[in-house]
Simulated scan of single mutants.
Amino acid sequence: MDFMTSGVVLDVLRLLIAAVFVLMGVNHFVPRSARTMAAMMPPRMRGTGILAPLNLVYLTGACEIAGGLGLVFPPTRIAAGIALVVFLAAVFPANAYAATRRDRFGALAVPFVPRLIAQIVLAALILLVAFF
């Protein structure tokens, strides 16, 4: 059996991506991290009440955990993959906002173009492991 066609590579990649999303999602519930992520939201996207930045951080954390877990289970794999790609697009404005404020966000402020390329590559990998 050929290593590349045995599915081992896709299985390992799927588990790695799932683990990254679950761990990143859990990080959304760490108070210091959550406050920093809430500050990364562009002013035009800040709401109040249920749409307050910190609540959106918790929501996105839950989405990352659910999406990561969903990639692992065959019945939810495709839906989770699609949802994670939509998720990446939805959170990109916060990453773009942070990218212009490196003095405020430090290492989280990945420059815009590398962040965009990384998000596109990640989205492609998610779809690969979700559909195959």
Rank of each mutant, 00 (worst) to 15 (best):
D2S: 13
F3Y: 15
M4F: 14
G7Q: 01
V8Y: 13
V12L: 15
V12H: 15
L13V: 10
L13A: 11
R14P: 04
A19P: 07
A19R: 05
F21M: 14
V22T: 12
V22A: 14
M24G: 13
H28D: 00
F29K: 10
F29I: 11
V30E: 04
V30M: 12
P31R: 06
P31L: 06
R32N: 07
R32G: 04
S33T: 15
S33C: 15
A34G: 03
A34Y: 00
R35I: 03
A38Q: 14
A39H: 07
M40H: 07
P42F: 09
P42V: 12
P42E: 14
P43T: 02
P43N: 01
R44P: 01
R44M: 14
R44E: 15
R44C: 11
R44V: 13
R44W: 12
M45W: 06
I50F: 14
A52G: 04
P53V: 05
V57E: 03
T60I: 06
T60V: 10
T60S: 15
C63I: 08
A66Q: 03
A66Y: 02
G68H: 14
L71R: 02
L71K: 04
V72G: 00
P74V: 09
P74E: 09
P74W: 03
P75N: 08
T76A: 11
T76C: 08
I82M: 03
L84G: 03
V85R: 01
F87A: 13
L88S: 07
L88C: 10
L88P: 04
A89V: 13
A90V: 10
F92S: 08
P93H: 10
P93R: 05
A94H: 09
A96C: 05
Y97A: 02
Y97F: 14
A98I: 02
A98L: 01
A98M: 04
R101M: 15
D103E: 08
D103H: 01
D103N: 11
R104D: 00
V110F: 07
V113T: 05
V113E: 02
P114R: 07
P114F: 09
R115E: 12
R115H: 12
R115I: 11
L116M: 15
L116Y: 08
I117W: 02
I120Y: 04
I120M: 10
V121L: 14
L125H: 07
L127K: 15
L127S: 13
V129L: 15
A130Y: 01
A130H: 02
F131Q: 12
F132P: 15
F132W: 14
